[in-house]
Design a protein around this nucleic acid. Structure first.
Length: 880
RNA sequence: GAGACUGUAGCUCAGUUGGUUUAGAGCAUUACCUUGACAGGGUAGGGGUCGGGGGUUCGAAUCCCUCCAGUCUCACCA
């Protein structure tokens, strides 16, 4: 009763079938029980995002770890969810509305939020459906959203708690303003890059001295509208006579002071600096020090405000062009030079960030950073790869306060309420009102008189609570006690500050301990040219199309086989192709086994008994190695070991050994062992390639077996080293036979007699039951004869220290044989020289450990013996 | 400007406290063979002054110094 199997592995149908089945069985679901937990929290993707290669990589890794834990008998819990992504989502909604002809400014806050929620309902969670296609075994019942009720409660509670502890405050500071999204950004959301610009040298005429001027160099001529001083270094000899004088700001003709401050760099530009306190961090500090006025010339959208006096309403970049023209016309430009300098852009909108003075909410980071820094220093939270510790330490030791308010509507509204100068921070308006009445000592203040802050919180202010909020930890301690701290966080290194560090801080601040034991930083997925994959470059393959083409298992294989922790991953379709071919290889191994006719009356041939023992011991060896690799988060190493075990050991050697002759039946023991070995393979490979393994398993499982996904790893058996090493020797002999036939144009399947010269090594090898039989079978030999030294004839070869002769009545090409031997001799002699050199070195013998010296001596002896064998063979050839 | 990391075969990378056959794997490539499980399979081969130089050591891809190249992070002077 053979099973009918398709010619190739058909991934699409199989994947759909098993995923639905696993879900229906509730295999992904986790509830606290007596087992140890193994917990992973997904880095929540943007709720309206689509699956890209970065997600594929890091979710594949998480799934491998979760499935591995499940097979180890742990209570595996992988919590999925999405992030509301304040800026990104709001921008998308605004764009969508604009396309419908609706302006955000025409809507009330509530109307806008209604549209936003509608958008979220329509597109939200699409990415989680896509993750299912990849095989992600998340506990979907636990799906969380950073803006759902439970998560929101955590956000407000955290805000109020920090405020009450004095670790959160409202302050007037120079901030990063994104004129496109029209919100403030944290330092971490500003990306600095070198860009080509110009340095404009402009004339500032000295008041009361006709024709005399100071030349000022700037990259931003348009900000002169906000100038309230110019500054020079007090020791600069060029400017000593300017003390007490003023200059006229060009075009707007405002007279401003010349101030002297050693902040100015004499070497740079002309040594004279224009001071615009409203639009530059350093100028702001200078302004404070010298009591300068502050003229804010920009509207929130980056256009010039009335305070600018000129160009009112024009965009800042248009003004730059225009103002240069106007300055030229007024003969106030001295020089324009090309200049490369760093420009800060918004991470989300790519708009050039405008420094701006503004009142915002901040978290006092130095107040909460210390335990989080120590945790990573001491490896209480362990980073993989280790060198991320450096980056973390550097940032944590120089940490700045975190600006958390955003001038947006989509997000958690700041729970702060105002009445005149009174501020109340509270979970609800009633409490806030009460507090304000108390502060103002005026119980007559009504609800309608207090105003809640219009701003929302930075998205990351909800994300940093993720390890607690996903378990509803502050309102239901039970789950948190069981699952927290989680086992490992898998994420990209690009959000180490935005997210990882802050989660560690939140963990210590509120739970008193770390949120995850390990952090596995994945690299960035890049294309073959090392460019980061991005939508704008169009170099990112469509994740779902890849799955369609190569199968989820194939894609997972492709992503994993080249993903060293932290190292960038150069993605190439070819890797997925290799994965698909691998699936197919396994599929065909299964087909082969199922195609055999079993004859129950046959007893098992010795060679098959030996082969089965070997493949089992080899399995244990591989299983141990992969376990270690995974424990060190070296997933690609583990996968490659498995790949080679399956392809080379199981398929190329083992199946070829036990395979019956064409159309002959096979004994049942051999088939059962082959099936058992393949089942073991399924278990070991399951975390990496879940679909094919479940499918193969399902055709092999007995009624007592559970499904592959929830079965347990087989028990480890001590590896019989002598069996494995005898087998290696056997493989060498067979390879040599194949090679000899190949070299001499003998058909591989032509049966020839093999003579083995008797010595200790060959005697031991051949005495193991099944070795001879295997040689006969897969070496296609007519017979094996043990002979005395010197009796051999035919094609000789050496394996280990033993001599073998493949006899043939074909004329031997003595010249070719000789060449081969001479080359081998050359190598061996070279080797001997290097070993001898080492051993002749008195320093080596005296200083190296005995073990090492012993090993070198053995290498030398072996080499001498081998050289003797080769020389003998050469002599004989020459004689004949 | 400060710091971190990387440099090993055509490509991607291993090489775990300096010593296990004069440096390994996968992919790619070449030749031959095979094609009755396999979108293939088998066998063999080519290809590397371990970025350059110097040092420590009996011994260095591995440790130290220096130079070169690249990547990244942080901070920024108009």
């Amino acid at each position: 009763m053979s099973i009918q199997l398709s010619k190739h592995f058909e991934s699409a149908a199989v994947e759909q079938k098993w995923y639905a089945y696993w879900e229906s069985k509730g295999y992904f679901a986790s509830t606290p029980d007596e087992r140890d937990p193994y917990t992973i929290l997904i880095p929540p993707p943007n709720v309206t995002g689509v699956l890209h290669m970065g997600h594929m990589l890091n979710n594949t890794i998480q799934d491998v770890l979760i499935r591995r834990a499940r097979l180890n008998g742990l209570n595996a819990c992988w919590v999925p969810g999405t992030d509301h992504a304040s800026i990104a989502t709001e921008a998308k909604v605004v764009k969508m509305l604009r396309e419908k002809g609706i302006k955000k400014s025409d809507l009330t806050r509530d109307e806008f939020l209604e549209h936003a929620w509608g958008w979220k309902e329509e597109y939200g969670g699409k990415i989680l459906k896509q993750l299912r296609k990849l095989g992600a075994s998340c506990d979907w019942d636990r799906t969380a959203f950073t803006m759902d009720e439970v998560r929101s409660e955590h956000v407000y509670k955290a805000f109020v708690d920090l405020y009450e502890k004095g670790k959160l405050y409202r302050g007037l500071r120079m901030v990063n303003w994104d004129p496109e999204a029209q919100t403030v950004l944290s330092n971490e959301e500003v990306i600095h890059n070198e860009e080509n610009g110009k340095l404009y040298h402009m004339k500032y005429m000295i008041v009361g001295e006709v024709g005399k001027y100071v030349t000022i160099a700037t990259t931003r001529p348009e900000t002169l509208l906000g100038d309230t001083a110019i500054a020079v270094h007090p020791d600069d000899p060029r400017y000593t006579d300017l003390k007490g004088k003023s200059v006229t700001v060009p075009l707007i003709n405002r007279d401003v002071k010349i101030i002297f401050d050693d902040y100015v760099d004499i070497e740079f530009g002309t040594g004279a600096l224009k001071v615009t306190p409203a639009h530059d961090v350093n100028d702001y500090e200078l302004g404070k020090k010298h009591n300068l006025g502050v003229v804010d010339i920009f509207e929130d959208n980056g256009s010039i405000s009335e305070a600018g006096l000129l160009y009112i309403g024009m965009d800042r970049f248009d003004v730059r062009k225009q103002i240069v023209k106007d300055l030229k016309n007024a003969d106030l430009i001295v020089e324009i030079e090309d200049y490369r300098h760093s420009v800060g852009r918004s991470e989300r909108t790519n708009a050039v960030v405008e420094p701006k003075l503004s009142l915002q909410w901040y978290v006092d980071m130095p107040a909460i950073a210390k335990p989080a820094l120590e945790a990573v220093e001491s490896d209480e939270v362990e980073f993989f790869p280790k060198n991320m510790k450096n980056t973390y330490r550097h940032w944590m030791s120089n940490i700045k306060d975190w600006c958390i308010s955003r001038q947006l509507w989509w997000g958690h509204r700041i729970p702060a309420y105002y009445y005149g100068d009174y501020v109340a921070v509270a979970l609800d308006a009633e409490t806030a009102l009460k507090s304000i009445q108390e502060q103002a000592k005026d119980p007559s203040i009504t609800m309608s008189e207090i105003k809640q802050d219009e701003d929302v919180l930075d998205t990351w202010f909800s994300s940093w609570l993720w390890p607690m909020s996903t378990f509803n930890g502050w309102f239901d301690q039970k789950e948190l006690d069981y699952y927290y701290p989680t086992s490992v966080l898998v994420t990209g290194w690009d959000i180490i500050f935005l997210w990882v560090a802050r989660m560690v801080m939140a963990g210590y601040e509120w739970q008193g301990t770390f949120p995850f034991k390990d952090v596995y930083f994945t690299g960035m997925v890049r294309d073959k040219k090392r460019r980061k994959m991005s939508k704008s470059l169009g170099n990112s393959p469509d994740a779902l199309k890849l799955i369609e083409e190569f199968g989820a298992d194939g894609v997972r294989f492709g992503m994993l086989s080249c993903s060293p922790a932290g190292g960038d991953l150069l993605f190439d379709d070819k890797l997925c192709l290799q994965g698909r071919n691998f699936s197919n290889k396994i599929w065909n191994a299964l087909k082969l086994i199922h195609s055999w006719d079993i004859d129950e009356s046959l007893s098992q041939p010795t060679e098959n008994t030996l082969a089965s023992e070997w493949i089992n011991h080899k399995f244990n060896e591989v299983s141990k190695l992969t376990e270690q690799s995974i424990a060190d988060y070296r997933l690609s190493e583990a996968l490659i070991k498995l790949y080679s075990y399956i392809w080379d050991d199981y398929c190329s050697w083992y199946l070829e050994m036990i395979k019956p002759a064409y159309q002959s039946p096979i004994d049942s023991a051999s088939v059962n062992q082959a099936k058992a070995a393949l089942k073991n393979i399924c278990i070991l490979l399951h975390p990496f390639m879940p679909f094919i393994t479940e499918e193969v398993w399902s055709t092999l499982k007995t009624d007592d077996d559970s499904d592959c996904i929830v079965t347990r790893y087989p028990e480890y058996i001590e590896v019989d080293e002598s069996l494995v090493s005898d087998f290696e020797r056997l493989k060498e002999v067979v390879s040599s036979i194949r090679d000899t036939k190949n070299q001499n144009q003998i058909n591989l399947k032509e049966l020839l007699p093999l003579s083995v010269v008797q010595d200790d090594e060959s005697t031991q090898l051949l005495s193991r039951a099944g070795i001879k039989e295997t040689m006969l079978k897969i070496g296609y030999l007519e017979s094996i004869n043990v002979i005395a030294d010197g009796e051999g004839s035919g094609y000789g070869f050496i394996v280990g220290k033993s001599k073998y002769y493949l006899e043939s009545n074909q004329e031997i090409d003595a010249e070719a044989e000789l060449q081969k031997l001479l080359e081998e001799l050359k190598y061996q002699e070279g080797f001997l020289i290097s070993v001898t050199k080492k051993l002749d070195n008195k320093g080596f013998v005296a200083n190296a450990p005995a073990k090492v010296v012993e090993m070198e001596q053995k290498k030398k002896d072996d080499s001498i013996a081998r050289i003797a064998l080769i020389k003998e063979a050469i002599d004989r050839l020459k004689k004949s």
